[in-house]
Design a protein around this nucleic acid. Structure first.
Lengths: 210, 210, 210, 210
DNA sequence: CATGAATGAGTCTTCATTCAT
DNA sequence: AATGAATGAAGACTCATTCAT
């Protein structure tokens, strides 16, 4: 039933989703509270009432997703036996997250670009926890002699970066296809699943050398 | 001697360099004209006098570099004989640009993230011209049977993305090394030359398949 | 009671009245949004919230009055039978407008001086509609053999100009009475009603020739 | 010969003429020193060097013309015998001035509109001296029993106003002729001479009653 | 809870004026 | 005299945030 709690939850989710989209489109500095409120169909003051100021909103958008991702990823990695399976669990966890939250990669791209300038403490910890999981998997793989030593931060940046650039190339393709021949639209929202598989293969080949 | 022309040129270059840095740090929306002027050591009105408004400044910052890069790249590719040598010329041209203009990759990352939200027409054309060069090299390689067909936009995004993520990982590493063990600072400004070589190898292996 | 609608309406009217005064005193270019806000007793941002930017404000100030004037004038002219009565309706409509909106003539004087530099499209249409009414009355009078042919634009300029110069002579008189003897204050706000009557007589004598 | 003095004189005149034009077009507040300098073909700093700041420039533009007009008008009135001839001298002096300085009426219109807000002291005195001449002529005519008593300020405003509105109706006519039928271009620069004659007749008939 | 209104601290941009050469 | 460059004080407009109802 539609309890008061449920309706509030729905409103908050709607705000967060819209905010994610706006932050992805225009960045933290470019995002306008007015715009977020309008597109979410709520009064601007409601954002402040339910969530807080711009910084708190940004934090919620990232922490809700990344915190959850870190927890699930830890569970999935724990459930896996071999280092290879654990890498599978890692990449698939990322894949699931970006499937549910398609605006995340663009937000993270900007954060990378600014060197994490206004990443809030909690989100830094979320990311650190994810990178820590990767580090542990690599270390286990190395000590078992199955992996070569690879920097976990670089690896994670590559994974996120690959997804980010892939997912953001769409608008560019549209922009450039008018200017150039030979640029058919090979990418699309549908291709993300395969993208994840491809990335997993690349990551594993990088870890097992060749 | 210090002719008037020369001093003007110096001032303009100083403004452009500072602007590039600020745009890289905080993005177009986050950049403050006041801040740029202060850090460049000039009066704010001088930016408007010598260059123009924020948009014109952003355009100059990107077009001065990318227009020149496109021209040089075309020359270098023309001078090369085989498709493989041309890809070498392409990657090295990029490498030279980001070496001289270390803030460019971060600016481009943000543009990718926003789907080219602030990219001015001229700069879009500069990019199109670069991607066109890549496309032509790939086509020649394909028709000679040396390359497999690869999307030139994706290829270029990968190259720029790889450099961008690599160059921006430094601040992250510093941020995270405090939180985590096993994250020594493996990247650095010095590593760019090798980075370019590594990227060239990856690009060629992607084009020649395996 | 003081409903929200009513209070908003009051605020908007206060802003518009103050703006009319400031525009009349210093012209479009000389008017300061800060000044208008201060004198209206509202926060500057409220002008933008309720009305819009300087141009929109100027447009509202003129269109609210002239649009209404054009409509009422058309009604009054329609209600009148003879061309002479219609001219009466025309002049009295003008008179009523400048009585209620005493700052309008000065604003229009400046517009005439600049050739309508800042006149927005809507206001040009309002004026055209008024001049159109005058033209039709003159044409009817001519075809009835009661009027001689007179240029409607010139006629309207004369009417507006006469009122404008008359109403603005007050400050001048005050300025000059100190410098000169024999310049008693013969004009005053009270004299406007008679002014309108005088103007009507002049206009009619010009139209009936002699 | 082109002495240094002569060249300077030419430059100053050019600046003053251009300034008059710009002040007429956009008003004191709307006039831009940059614009005046550009259109006069001189460096902006030269205006400050030769004439002074914006206010000084405005003063020069008006005082050079009105001071001279007042002097000549006094001479011409003195030379005339009857009050009627003196009125002729007055109106013709005005006519000669606006013929040589076609931008003056628009500038004066704005001054009237603002109640002489930023008319400098000297120019106020020039105007006062002109109105004083008119007053004296009227008084003489009255004491001779030839004129009825008419307010000299109002009379002068009417003369200047008539010329002003007539001369500024051109741009309006062009603006409105597109919107309306029956608005042929009856006014023109060429018509000024006749305008002056017409005004003289009106003034005299007002003074001699009827 | 929800909403329109209010606010003050910015942010970009312009412009009259002055300086150095 | 003449010019390009420099400057500081506004001015228009925006925006995150809060208030009153």
């Amino acid at each position: 039933m539609n309890t008061r709690e449920a309706r509030k939850e729905k409103t908050v989710q709607c705000i967060l989703d819209t905010a994610a989209q706006v932050f992805a489109e225009t960045g933290y500095e470019g995002a306008r509270m007015d715009n977020i409120a309008d597109r979410a169909g709520v009064n601007k003051a409601m954002i402040y009432y339910h969530i807080g100021n711009k910084e708190a909103l940004y934090t919620r958008v990232l922490h809700d997703v990344l915190g959850d991702t870190a927890v699930r990823m830890a569970e999935n990695i724990n459930r896996a036996d071999t280092p290879t399976d654990k890498i599978h669990a890692y990449v698939q966890s990322i894949g699931r997250t970006v499937e549910i939250h398609p605006h995340l990669p663009r937000i993270m791209m900007r954060e990378f670009a600014s060197g994490g300038l206004h990443l809030p403490e909690v989100v830094v910890k979320d990311l650190a926890s994810i990178i820590g999981l990767v580090r542990d998997v690599i270390q286990e793989g190395c000590s078992r002699g199955e992996f070569t030593d690879v920097d976990p931060l670089i690896l994670h940046l590559m994974v996120m970066g690959g997804i980010g650039y892939f997912k953001t190339s769409g608008p560019f393709r549209r922009k450039y296809s008018a200017l150039m021949e030979g640029l058919s639209d090979r990418t699309g929202e549908a291709g993300v699943v395969d993208l994840i598989g491809e990335i997993e293969r690349i990551v594993l080949s990088a870890l097992t050398n060749c």
